[in-house]
Design a protein around this nucleic acid. Structure first.
Lengths: 204, 204
DNA sequence: ACATGGTTTAACCAAATGGTTAACAAATTT
DNA sequence: AAATTTGTTAACCATTTGGTTAAACCATGT
C-alpha cells in the first residue's frame, strides 16, 4: 500500500511547495526544504514537476485561481455598488485572514516577473472590469453615487482591503500594535472600510 | 588619481547595491551583479561592506530613511487634517514616482524578516502616531470630521497612496491599462485620493 | 628613493543548489 | 509469473555563490 499511483502525492508536494514558496518567494525557496516538508526525496519533486520553475508556476497559478473568484464577486454581480462594497470587504478580509501569505506572494512574484501576468490574462475568465464600469457610470448618472471613475474606485477598494495584509509588519510598527491588537484592527475593518468607501461616494 | 581614498567609491557601491537589491530583493540579488554594476571587482564589495548581509542592511536603512520623513509630514505638522491629507497625497505620489521600487522593497523585505523592524523602532525619530492621534480626536470632537480612529485613518491614507505602486502589475492587468495609461491613473490620484478621503471623513 | 598603509585585483575555495542517474521496488500488463 | 511500466531512493554532478587570500598597486610621508 505504499507505492500506489498516488493522486495524493502530487497534492502533497503542491501543498508543501505552496507553503515554502509563499513564505520565502521563488528565490528564497529551496527544493530540499520543499522535499523535506513534503516528506519525500528531492528527486521526487523533479519526477512530478520537472523543475523548480514549473513547480513554482503550478503553485502560483493555484494561488491566483483562489484569489480571482473573490474579486469577480465585486464585479459581476447585480447588487448595488453599496451592497457589493459591503459584501466584498467583509468577505475578502475573512478570506485573506485564512490565506495570509496569498496577496503578498502574488504581488511580489508579479513584480519580480511582470511578463507572468500575460499568461494569466489569456485565461477567458480573467477579471474584467467592463460590467463594473457600466454599473458605476449608471449609478453616477442616477445620482446614487458621486462622480468617480470605475478604475479609481476599484483601485481604492483593492487598496483598502489588501494593503493592511501586505504591509502588516510596517503598519504594526507604525501603529505600535502587537499581533493580537493588529488582528483586532483588521477585524474592525470588515465594516470600517465599507463605511469609509460608502461615505465617500454616496450622494447626500 | 585612481587610487585615492575615495569617499565616492562607497557611495558608488551603495548606489549599485540599491539598484540591484531594490529590483531583485535580498535573495534574488547577486554580489557579482552588484560589483558589475558598480564597475568594480567583487572583492571590493567585501572590502567596503564585509558581507552581503551588511551591504543589504546599509541599503535598507538608507531606503527607509528616505521614506520616513515623508510620513512624518502627515503626522507632525500643525495644519488641519484635511490640508495634511491633501498635501501628503500629492507629495507622496510625486515622491514615489521617482523611487518606484522603494515601497515594494521595504514591504517585501520586512515580510521576509519581520524582526528587522525592531532595530528600526529603536531609532528615536521613528514614526510616532501620538500627535496625529490627538489631532484626529480633537477634530472629531469639534465636529470637523466624522468619528474615525486615528489608526484606521492612517492605514487608509497609507493604503490608498502606496498600494497602487506596490501592486502595479496586478492593477495594470485588472484595469487593462498599459504603462502610460497607468501612469496617468496614478497622476490623477494626486487629487483623486485626497478628495476620496476628505469626502469620506469631513462632516457635512 | 623607499618604506608604509590603504586600495585593488585575479585566482581560489568550500558550501550550497538545482538537477540527473542508475539501480531498486512495487504495481500493472501480458 | 514474466515482462513492463511506474514510483522511489541514494549517490552523484556541474554550476553558482558568498567569501577569502596573497600578491600587486599606488599615493604619501620620511
Amino acid at each position: 500500500m505504499k507505492k500506489t499511483k498516488d493522486e495524493n502525492k502530487e497534492k502533497q508536494i503542491l501543498d508543501a511547495a505552496k507553503s515554502i514558496f509563499q513564505s520565502k518567494g521563488m528565490d528564497g525557496a529551496r527544493m530540499q526544504e520543499i522535499a523535506d516538508k513534503a516528506g519525500i526525496n528531492k528527486a521526487m519533486l523533479h519526477y512530478y514537476y520537472r523543475s523548480k520553475q514549473l513547480l513554482f508556476e503550478a503553485v502560483f497559478k493555484n494561488a491566483f485561481s483562489l484569489l480571482a473568484p473573490q474579486l469577480n464577486a465585486v464585479l459581476n454581480d447585480d447588487a448595488s455598488i453599496e451592497s457589493k462594497v459591503r459584501n466584498f470587504t467583509s468577505n475578502y478580509i475573512s478570506f485573506i485572514a485564512e490565506h495570509p501569505y496569498l496577496p503578498n506572494f502574488i504581488i511580489q512574484e508579479l513584480n519580480r516577473n511582470p511578463e507572468f501576468i500575460i499568461k494569466l490574462k489569456d485565461n477567458p475568465n480573467f477579471l474584467n472590469l467592463d460590467k463594473f464600469k457600466v454599473q458605476v457610470e449608471q449609478e453616477v448618472e442616477k445620482g446614487i453615487i458621486k462622480p468617480i471613475s470605475a478604475e479609481q474606485l476599484f483601485i481604492n477598494i483593492m487598496a483598502l482591503n489588501i494593503f493592511p495584509f501586505v504591509a502588516k509588519p510596517l503598519l504594526m510598527a507604525f501603529t505600535n500594535t502587537d499581533n493580537s491588537a493588529y488582528k483586532q484592527l483588521i477585524e474592525d475593518r470588515k465594516t470600517e472600510v465599507a463605511d469609509f468607501i460608502i461615505n465617500s461616494i454616496k450622494h447626500t
